[in-house]
Amino acid sequence: MALLEVNNLKKYFPIKKGILSRTVGQVQAVDGVSFTLKKGETLGLVGESGCGKTTVGRSILRLIEPTSGQVTFNGQNLLRLEREELRKVRASLQIIFQDPFSSLDPRMNVGQIIAEPIRNHLKISKSEMRNQVAYLMERVGLHPEQMSRYPHEFSGGQRQRIGIARALALNPLAVICDEPVSALDVSIQAQVINLLAQLQEQMNLSYLFIAHDLSIVEHISDRVAVMYLGRIVELATDRELYQNPMHPYTQALLSAVPIPDPEIRKKKILLQGDVPSPINPPSGCAFHTRCPERKEICSREEPIFQNIGADHWVACHLM
């Protein structure tokens, strides 16, 4: 059974104008996203900036209240929960933020930051808390002696480790990683990714790994979902997606990944034009305005997201 099941999740942000705050339109940030996340699995979620990846992550946790849809986590429908129930569920569904600078309170020291989730959910003594925090810090590769230091005294990579320790403090089942390494230097990215992979193995965690860097997602994910303009256009296992991309958008994305070998000449698919506005998305297939292989049907009918075999799902009329 799936640990996390997202069904037809939608988030429309209203656009308000005038003194009476009339709603004059909607930004369709997430428009019918469905996927499942199994126990111990990593699902990569990739797409361009502004395609709705982050909104998906935050809607699942109800940091942003979704417009409609269903999110089932560990047998409970998160969107129906009351405050107090939601608080309890969030102990086992955590998040790691993209920006390690704004995600830590600058006026709290590292010990207080990591202890905060524990203090709110468990009643344990001060010395026990200290031990627990020290253990967590060691686990993510920080020195427990630095417990009384403040976030600004750490580098970006170390700060991200603090964020990871905080997210793992309550032994969660799943963690939403919202571009956890895109704010870091390349050399640090690898360290943090490897730490995440190692922790996953030790604690049997599930990750929803949101990123825009395809090579990082390939490294850590079991399955990958590609998003375009608020929708998932292709979802397949890691190997299948990278070796046999079916959707023209996925093909274009993959052709843009640089290969560190000057001898190989790749055929690059260059997409024309900009991403259409999510306020007024194109009719039919949202990608048809930029698709190199579009047909007449693409602008008329929305393609169905279907399984084309071997757990490879694609939303395209060409299949």
């Binding site: 940091l63 600058p106 989730p117």
Partner: peptide, 22 residues
């Protein structure tokens, strides 16, 4: 809307405590 306030919400901190502590 800063991430550390969002994080506090996820950690289960009550609204009053978020205002007072963060």
């Amino acid at each position: 809307d800063q991430d550390f306030v969002q994080a506090a919400k996820i950690m289960g901190v009550s609204d009053l405590k978020i205002i007072l502590r963060h």
